[in-house]
Nucleic acid binder design. Structure first.
Lengths: 194, 194
DNA sequence: GGCAACATACCGACTGGTTGGTATGTTGCG
DNA sequence: CGCAACATACCAACCAGTCGGTATGTTGCC
């Protein structure tokens, strides 16, 4: 049921996804739906949490965490995000960003749960940014938290561009800009220099 | 009528804005509405175009164009964007991005008009980026077009973050990152050096 | 074991209100 | 007059949510 919700909401948005439609897609009756969820808003919150779980385990179990260099872990994360941005637009865009846009004012609980999903994911990047700052120093003075959030800002914006263009290319381009920015921020010692 | 549409859609989204609600807000009857617009989808397209016009004249008549240095014009643009990001969230966020997110799949004409608004605005920045590249050179090799689009990507992402946080702070932070990125990209000669 | 009392999971017809959209006036101006 | 700009009344489809009912456990007491 939640799986069907993720798919439908990512495609049509929260408001445009009806309970009937969702039930049909999930192969359950309306009675079953309202047995498990108090309201449609309740489903939205549950969907955001489910999204957090799915993406949480996906990124938590990713290989890039094993890299010894924190900066390499950050680049590994960007590579992973790029490798995920393939196929149809509704298949790689972010449920949380989509729902947040249209529920922040009308359905605050859904918006809050969606925002928590984004900030929660950003928080998992913060230690690597902090370690990179500690190890390499940083030009300018953005904090690890700010950099982690900015990464998500760029990705969310890239998803909007992808929805307009109809393919994943804007995501890859945005990730390149992000990589270049980080490259400027963290001045790595040249290989083989003293 | 279009003015009311902009306000309502930015607040509630396209799907959650009903024709009745819109008519009430605009102080017209439903008959008048369907006299001017063939359908709700038609209104969406018109709203996107109206948005393009409003923002188009706003930025076209801005002072930063008068600066002699193209890079200063870019920074002037960023300053202007920052100065616009004040007050309530629905008052400074982007209609085009909001509509694009929820109509790209269900109402392609609305999505396309919204995307055209974003890319059209980005195109107005391109000459300044190109002039900056020509004047200062550039580190890495992003094109003027790519930089102009990236600026919008970051802003769109920042608007999503602002909707989550409930205020404009994420927009200002994102613009700072953008400014820092451009600062790295365009190596300006130090004041007073040969 | 047997059986009553209760709990959970689910069904699907139904409701009151809302939706986008239409069909048929009415008004006012050139 | 004629025609554009509206207003009014209305419609079928759809919406989220309800409700009486059923099937299947689960518990606890004798």
């Amino acid at each position: 049921m939640l799986t069907a919700a993720l798919s439908l909401i990512r495609r049509h948005g929260f408001a445009a996804t009806s309970v009937d439609e969702l039930c049909a897609a999930a192969g359950v009756t309306k009675g079953a739906f309202f047995h498990h969820f108090r309201s449609k808003e309740d489903l939205g919150v549950a969907a955001a949490r489910h999204w957090s779980e799915i993406t949480g385990t996906l990124f938590a179990t990713a290989d890039y965490h094993d890299l010894p260099d924190p900066l390499e872990r950050i680049y590994g994360y960007l590579d992973l995000r790029a490798s995920l941005a393939v196929g149809g637009v509704p298949d790689f865009t972010c449920l949380a960003g989509t729902m947040l846009q249209e529920t922040y004012d009308c359905h605050p609980p859904v918006g809050e749960a969606s925002y928590a999903s984004i900030t929660g994911h950003a928080a998992t990047l913060e230690p690597d940014f902090q370690a990179a700052i500690d190890l390499y120093g940083i030009k300018g003075c953005p904090s690890a938290r700010s950099l982690a959030l900015h990464t998500q800002t760029v990705l969310q914006g890239a998803f909007i561009q992808a929805k307009g263009k109809g393919d994943a290319e804007p995501v890859h381009e945005a990730l390149e800009h992000l990589r270049r920015y980080f490259n400027f921020l963290f001045p790595r010692p040249v290989e083989g220099s003293p």
